[in-house]
Write a protein that binds this DNA or RNA. Structure first.
Lengths: 160, 160
DNA sequence: GCGTATTGTTATATAGCATTACAATCAGAG
DNA sequence: CTCTGATTGTAATGCTATATAACAATACGC
């Protein structure tokens, strides 16, 4: 991806600010705490990138995964998102109601639907994706490029 | 009026396992996505460490911070946790109902309460803390010690 | 003293899930 | 083939965490 103007839109993300003069004990020794703070910061960056577009991380993830796997089932989507089938169902309803995705009957299985992005869904994803990745890069620019590579590698090693 | 029992059961931990044979598109290029996966993994470890003890990360954080700052106000706690005052209020109610913390009048300000851990609160925190940190270390053991140091350093640099 | 800001509190609303139950369909044993 | 159990989508329900708004009491600045 082209680096481009790495200027984040809007003010800096409002990370959960540390309260001055307050002790946080040994929380920084807790990897989960540090991870959560970082994830919240990334979440705020995402929200800024998608301001005005009624999207959320799960919806964005669903768009991406359905786009990468045309014809996949709702159950499969739910598994990929780590949510119950009912969650994948609501997500799919939402996408379909906005004309971003559609259910098509599978010829092999009369129970399941095959999920597909519509042209509008693909267009929206492409448009949002660019903004998200650009702002993402701006956010990550607090680290040197090599540091970012290291960070992602360590996180993936940790997650397994 | 105090908010009753406040049920014990939390939601099932969302273990996001990768679905075999499914493409995840470019999600791994999204720092927020990778961070969220790692944070969920850490959350699951936390749940395992505190099984049987009706605790959550916010409650654990509140215990730690109140313990490190005796006499702090509820507003200050809310700010530290990044939640509204009403959130800090419910949290304090919960701690007080379990005899883990108590409100004491401040002599300087008749509006605010000063928060303090009780002996029971300190004991519970110490007991849980040991388990959490041990399991935390086991979780982080997927990384070499030097890698863990690097990871924390990069995360803190990212969060600012 | 007076207007404004802060603190705790309460009530209310909402989003995002899980849980459960159910009908239709599939898969496999025999 | 039939029977049994598993899977898929769906609908109904409930719960948890959080935000929001309103309010009284108190503090603070001019």
């Amino acid at each position: 991806m082209k680096p481009g103007p790495l200027k984040a839109r809007g003010p800096r993300p409002r990370i959960i600010a540390r309260v001055p003069g307050l002790s946080y004990g040994d929380l920084d020794q807790h990897l989960g705490y540090v991870l959560r703070r970082a994830q919240l910061a990334a979440f705020e960056v995402f929200q800024r990138s998608t301001a005005g577009v009624d999207i959320t991380p799960p919806r964005y993830t669903a768009l991406t995964i359905v786009g990468a796997n045309p014809g996949m089932s709702q159950s499969s989507l739910g598994a990929a998102l780590g949510t119950a089938r009912s969650g994948a169902m609501m997500l799919t309803d939402w996408l379909e109601a906005r004309g971003l995705a559609e259910r098509r009957r599978l010829n092999g299985d009369a129970r399941a639907w095959g999920l597909h992005l519509t042209a509008r869904g693909k267009a929206l994803l492409a448009r949002i994706r660019r903004r998200v990745l650009v702002d993402n890069a701006a956010f990550a620019a607090r680290l040197a490029p090599s540091e970012l590579v290291t960070l992602k590698k360590l996180l993936e090693k940790l997650t397994g």
